[in-house]
Nucleic acid binder design. Sequence first.
DNA 1: ATCGTTACGTAACGCTGTCACGTAATAGCG
DNA 2: CGCTATTACGTGACAGCGTTACGTAACGAT
Lengths: 216, 216
Amino acid sequence: MSPRPVDPNLRPQLIDAAAKLLGEEGPAALSTRKLAAMVGTSTTAVYTYFGGMDDLVRAMVHEGFRLLGDRMGAVEESDDPVADVLALGWAYRDNAREHWHLYNVMFGGSGLSGFSLTDADRQHGRYTLDILVGAVKRCAATGRFRPFDPELVAHQLWIALHGLVTLDLGGYLVEPNTADVCFEAQVSGMILGAGDDPQRAQESLARAAQRRLRTQ
Amino acid sequence: MSPRPVDPNLRPQLIDAAAKLLGEEGPAALSTRKLAAMVGTSTTAVYTYFGGMDDLVRAMVHEGFRLLGDRMGAVEESDDPVADVLALGWAYRDNAREHWHLYNVMFGGSGLSGFSLTDADRQHGRYTLDILVGAVKRCAATGRFRPFDPELVAHQLWIALHGLVTLDLGGYLVEPNTADVCFEAQVSGMILGAGDDPQRAQESLARAAQRRLRTQ
DNA sequence: ATCGTTACGTAACGCTGTCACGTAATAGCG
DNA sequence: CGCTATTACGTGACAGCGTTACGTAACGAT
């Protein structure tokens, strides 16, 4: 009943090769033939392990979401929830910078030509938001933020982070308003807008900066 | 000395056809053959009027920047500069929604596969920012905003607008935190953060909303 | 040992961007 | 008016793309 078994290494190998190709030679270089050559099979492997090129890209995007989720999940919950929010912001930004080619496909409307995400794919992206919502809720619970719609506050943070990251990746943020400058202005502005005390916000910013140095 | 003259209509026709094709059939449908068929020439026209497919896309992107600039330039300077800023925000968002396929290519990192913007292209994009900077400066000049770095404030507004627009286009903003809800929260938050009086900010918001209804 | 099932290499199809080549059309000049 | 230089552009080719039909080889179950 059972035929030749699938090589369990081939699937991740193809995904890795695709990510590597995307990162090193750009989206135009992503082709079944190049991938097959890299992992030492033929182009049909893409069709047995995935439905086609689109599904391989989709799997790669899922991997990208997993990387982002891991990065943000690794941010520990401290007794300073505002510093946690800031640390999450940096985690988001650092991940996007590190895997910028993936980030573009994950969130860049068209991404590769002809490829588009489904609603199911987007659910993976929204997991990012859940982590942020939790941190914002803890800010509200400890009285640092006004108890006003944590979901909306998290959305605003996400929008600001995403806008910053994409304009940065697009090369639009140059001296003197670099991504770092804008990041700090944007995030601290939102925190003060959410109701935090300026003095304590400043302390949390410093704490988050120290945590970032420690973990990288 | 002079050969057969170039048909002056063919160039804009090709750009329009490309925009139409991009909007109606997606980025994958953009091909020299389809374009040639649409305007009634052969594929070589793309090479005589542009350097190739890339340059045609580039011309289309420039057209997109022009549309955005026109839309924002059409926002009149009133004696309520904060309302002007809000109106500019809506103009940005409305344009992006109307020409979303173009917007994705203009600001979406990879956009079409293999195509990438040059620094010269980005300068067109930054013109958008100049208009915003002017409005923010007028807010500061009239005492509505604190006189603190209008360029940075404009950057923050741009980042928020761009983040909102791209997440919206990507389908990430759903009930109850729709793009409209987030837009208002984001923009009013920034205005208050810039130092405006809450009461006057509310009035400006209402005024900008009325102006928007009037002009569309 | 045989058979059913499945992976996968080969080769093809239609599509793409790009370019060499030949032809047709035009403006300037005598 | 006629000639010629110059250029647009249609035709056809090329390499490379995603995808698939087909044949073969490898395996588990019986």
